[in-house]
Amino acid sequence: MNRGKGRALTEGQRAERRLGLWLCAPAAIVMVVVTGWPIVYSVLLSLQRYDLRFPEDKAWIGLSNYATVLTSEVWWNAFWVTLLITVVSVAIELVLGMLLAFAMYRAIVGRGLIRTVVLIPYGIVTVAAAYGWKYAWTPGTGWLAGLLPEGSAPLTERGPAIAIIILAEVWKTTPFMALLLMAGLAVVPEELMRAASVDGATLWQRFTRVTLPLMKPAILVALLFRTLDAFRIFDNIYVLTNGSQGTGSVSISAYHNLIGGLNLGIGSTMSVLILVTVAIIAVVFILGFGTAAPGSER
């Protein structure tokens, strides 16, 4: 009774804590070592003039890399292109994904077929699919390019090229969106839909008044995942245009500076800026829209 606050842990609780820590240690160590130090290191790199072609010029230059990048037209172009691709493709995916989710959830015939086939785009290696789209739109070679007026080469023009990038992105990732949304649909109780239709709600009203509000958490999580994923788009652009004609994303820009240009300072600065942008998007979703962070307590 008089053992102080009574807060002392029992033997069992202590053993449980120890076991928990031991079990998590390998995963935690790998994750922290492979991401933690590199993040710090890339912040350090971003504060230096460091071009591997001119290693002797290496010097601490404070924030001037940031000034260089943030005043660069190329960076801002890449930034807006990335944002455009992200917003447009996620919006299309949401609509298509919702339709697909309904089809997978409600189909009277061939539900198994749809659910299986839809996984094919998910399973395909992005690069392989990207080559498919590239050749499809290459004049002379492609079946889709043949549908266009004579002499057009869509992948060499900025607008059409971005549209094709969005198409490739939407094709590949809509199934994932649809699966997440389908799991959200499963949360809507069947009786509720019946009750609503007995109450006289039309199909559209049932969708907007019952299904959507109940699915909101699932939709927000799906949007969060897909937005962050779309923002780091790289593979499709690399194969389709490699960033030419102003179609490069921020990831492409950083890659070109780093691996092509061997400019570690500028490349790292872009990396840090991308990280910050992604963090802002996540925070907006979680705080602004109330997206439940996956894994958080409900």
């Binding site: 609780q13 449980e16 804590r17 120890r18 076991l19 928990g20 820590l21 998590c24 995963a27 935690a28 994750m31 922290v32 492979v34 991401t35 130090w37 590199p38 993040i39 290191y41 890339s42 790199l45 969060l224 995942f225 962050l228 923002f231 780091r232 790289f234 921020v250 990831s251 950083a254 890659y255 780093l258 691996i259 570690l264 490349g267 790292s268 872009m270 990396s271 840090v272 991308i274 990280l275 992604v278 996540a282 962070a293 996956p294 894994g295 958080s296």
Partner: peptide
């Protein structure tokens, strides 16, 4: 139940959302 469980969940969530390009340079 153990201390740092939420931290572990948080860290893995961060990594799941992490832009891979930011790791490429370092």
């Amino acid at each position: 139940t153990f201390p740092g469980k939420r931290l572990l969940i948080g860290v893995s969530l961060l990594i799941a959302m992490f832009p891979q390009i930011s790791l490429v340079s370092p």
